[in-house]
């Protein structure tokens, strides 16, 4: 789903707008909400919740629960985020939700590696949404040092870029020079 996330989202947005009388099936809203969360576009998620028709907002329905995930992310309440995500989901959302959990964890761990030079195991477990005994393994997997109850995250090594296309760069530079000379 992640690979063609953008096209899926656009498709769903189109479906929502072309729905007769402005009310689309509630599945459309839930799927769209999942897309926004996967893209970390919390503003769009918020307004989707605000504009969704009453028919899609049944109590404890998938749309409402997805939006509560969005709310938890907004306030950086990660443990609550994971606990909502681990509930029961309808079949059509199952895949998106499990993907979402992975995406959020990856995002949070990247942030931790940027923001912390040392962090306690309990905090890291809360951030990553894993149990206390698994968290050391998660940290070691990423090459972070574990010293007693404290983990030393290391920033991810910079991505090594492939060689640039010389001819293309040269063409662009030629353009600039001719622009500046004239």
């Amino acid at each position: 789903m992640l690979a063609d996330l953008e096209s899926t989202r656009k498709e769903l947005e189109k479906e929502e707008l072309s729905a007769p009388d402005g009310v689309a099936p509630s599945e459309v809203y839930s799927k769209l909400m999942a897309c926004y969360l996967l893209e970390n576009d919390l503003c769009s998620a918020k307004f989707l919740w605000k504009r969704a028709p009453a028919s899609a907002k049944e109590t404890d329905g998938p749309l409402g629960r997805l939006w509560s995930v969005g709310q938890k992310l907004w306030t950086k309440d990660f443990p609550a985020t994971y606990s909502v995500l681990r509930g029961e989901w309808p079949d059509y959302l199952q895949k998106a939700v499990s993907e979402l959990e992975g995406v959020i964890r990856e995002r949070v761990l990247t942030l931790v590696s940027r923001a912390y030079t040392s962090i306690t195991l309990t905090d890291l477990a809360a951030f990553a949404g894993v149990s206390a005994d698994q968290v050391a393994a998660v940290a070691r997997e990423r090459g972070w040092s574990v010293d007693g109850a404290v983990v030393g995250p290391k920033p991810a090594p910079p991505v090594i870029h492939g060689a640039t296309n010389c001819e293309k760069t040269l063409a662009v530079l030629t353009q600039y020079v001719s622009f500046l000379e004239n």
Partner: peptide, 8 residues
């Protein structure tokens, strides 16, 4: 901001 938190 650019900063690093040390919980230790």
């Amino acid at each position: 901001i650019f900063a690093a938190i040390d919980q230790r």
